[in-house]
Amino acid sequence: MTRPIRILLVEDNQADADLTMETLEAGKLRLQIKLAIDGAEAIDYLRGAARDSKTELPDLILLDLNLPKKDGRQVLREIKAEELLRRIPVVILTSSDAEQDILKSYDLGANCYVTKPVGLSAFQSIVRCVENFWFTVVKLP
């Protein structure tokens, strides 16, 4: 049996986090989801995993932009600056569709940018799309 796919979900909104996790877990893939509720926790977790051989690094990071303590953009900058972390694909999953956020994210090395759509089914379908694309279409490092 292959190992489950590891996802780090960085999301401060518990309701959104639940919805995302529920949708991801409803899929066919075997997933192991770690939730960080702010930017600082996310960075701590990643750095810890990079140092500690017992904890595996995630295969994919779903990152919200507007986060307490450490902003999503800062988290992204730090991930992309670290040797051991920068190859992990980062998907920005946010409610913002402002152009400056989109451009800034790609400048900082985001691997893709997804705006949370309005409406449950649209949201569910987007999350499934992301899951499907990154874990069945794309070859991960």
């Binding site: 909104n13 309701a15 959104d16 919805l19 409610s95 949370k116 309005v118 409406g119 449950l120 089914s121």
Partner: peptide
Amino acid sequence: LQEPLRMVANYTELLAQ
């Protein structure tokens, strides 16, 4: 306003589903 609204909308819909 959009953020909390999205939650209300999404969860009432999830309830419905």
